[in-house]
Nucleic acid binder design. Structure first.
Lengths: 132, 132
DNA sequence: TCATTCAAAGACTTATTGTATCTATAATAT
DNA sequence: ATATTATAGATACAATAAGTCTTTGAATGA
């Protein structure tokens, strides 16, 4: 159980986009090269962020990606959920009489983590950011 | 990124062992049947718990598994680490100038979850347990 | 001692997911 | 129109999850 590399790419890309001009988009080529991954693969990841409404894409010459308007509210959890999905990290398959107490504990633990990720915004990173 | 089923098996087995007699071991057959999984597979999982020092195995007739002495100190995190390993959930591969601020946030989040899992002991479950 | 009962260990499947790449298509600015 | 760029789909490969089968070896009871 580990976060996927795609999440790493997504987080770093978002941070880069946050620091960049809110007007002129950045091409996926540049974003991909920066992280040592193929443009088409990164594009596929970023498309999920587009669908989640966090960024928007611009086709054609001088196209690329830029943050959407609500940039100051984007949290780590938003990004992670867009890439990894929102399913629970732990799922008890057994049929217990009532609720599974083990699952309850696991869920609480997960919520602690999510709470921290929800309280940390992209904006909080921007000052001390260091992507290169 | 999800916890494996093996972790689910391990947690439920541990809870069952906690509730059982501290003297007479329970055979893997019974433990496996209870959870609808093959004995050899469950055995493989339990061997990791043995090596982690949480339970002990008894060979031969009337053998099986039982909790080790320090049963009251066993935490959820102990069990999970024995099965899933102790590696960080998030690893930034890039070569940043200094520390990766994104990874720092992820690590903090992970620690919140682990903290909760470390503070919850098997013992805390026993009263309200419900495994069948 | 000998057969039986049990866990341990390793080799081996099979399915699923992660991690990509390549090609073709659609959109856009010049 | 044409060059440039994102999108989508097909495909490939690797790693991990999930589990079975078989052999080995230890303990016990008769």
């Amino acid at each position: 159980m580990r976060f996927t590399k795609a999440t790493n790419y997504a987080l770093h890309t978002m941070l880069k986009l946050f620091e960049a001009s809110p007007v002129k988009p950045i091409g996926v080529q540049e974003l991909a090269e920066m992280q040592g991954v193929s443009p088409t693969y990164l594009s596929k990841i970023l498309t999920r962020l587009v669908k989640a409404g966090m960024i928007e894409s611009v086709s054609g010459v001088n196209g690329g990606y830029r943050l959407s308007r609500k940039k100051d509210d984007i949290t780590f959890l938003d990004i992670i959920h867009a890439i990894e999905g929102t399913a629970s990290l732990f799922e008890c398959n057994f049929v217990h009489g009532d609720e599974c107490t083990i699952q309850a504990v696991m869920k609480e633990a997960e919520e602690k983590m999510e709470s921290h990720l929800k309280n940390t915004k992209l904006m909080d990173m921007a000052s001390k950011a260091n992507i290169s």
